[in-house]
Amino acid sequence: MELTDKIKNVLNVQTIKLELIKTAFGKPDVYLANIDPRVLMFWYLTVSILPWFTFNNTILLFIIAYTAVLAVVSRVSPLILTLLGIGIVTELFTIVIVSLVFGGGTFEAILPLLTFSMKLFIMSIASVSVFASMSPERLSDGLLSLKVPAQFSFAVSYGYRMLPILLDEYHQIFQSFRLRGKTPENHGFLKWRIVYYYILVVIKSFYPLMLNIAKRTRLTVEALEVRGFSYSLHNPEAKRVKLSYLKVRTKDYLFILTQLGILLIIWWFGNTFPS
């Protein structure tokens, strides 16, 4: 009982909401936040794709260390890191089970599976550090300047604007289900009935949320029309004015050069001392 109380204190909806919002809205004082969004996206793609061209575990390990440092620099929220950590631990656990069951009782399959997981891990941690430090507006404008359709780039920034509201609304609906619902009398083995009850409520709560959003969107689309959004889609001048603040400056070149340099050094080191 005491342990669950402690967990509840740390892991309540309020805290989770705050952490998510902090992650989503970026931190203007973080180093990565001031890099041009297009440069950051280029870097992100490089780091995520590069590992798939190698099976060298030294290289992979060093890239993990490198991205981890960047995650620390961009002050990724502990909650997100914990979630990532839980993901890794369960992943490792399944790998052991899978290789035991399907590998004929030996651990031969573990290594290749580990290599695969490391690549996935690099992608996740790179995403977290990039998207946690970039503000939604810069992300959306970066996409727009890369010739992504304006409808999509707007949807990205609008999604961020709606996020806290959706979180609140989801929580309210979840509470509505609980207020009128009934927990099972018989808790079952390891309280599985209770767990099952909560899982059902978590899933069911999405349906009213979706309907509510659908209703609200009608008005939003109408307001978009009044506020000139569809006009801007056919107006190159509007796009130019909107993106005029995006410039690749010396510090952006410096950033990309040093990062590519670090990756090259890792690559060379890994090829010299393969594991």
Binding site: A223, G228, Y231, S232, V241
Partner: peptide
Amino acid sequence: DFQNQLMKLTVLEDVGFAPLNFGYP
């Protein structure tokens, strides 16, 4: 339902939304 009329994240961005769409520098 004015909440649904607000499109942007910050107040200044939102108020400037229409002028920006019409391309005013």
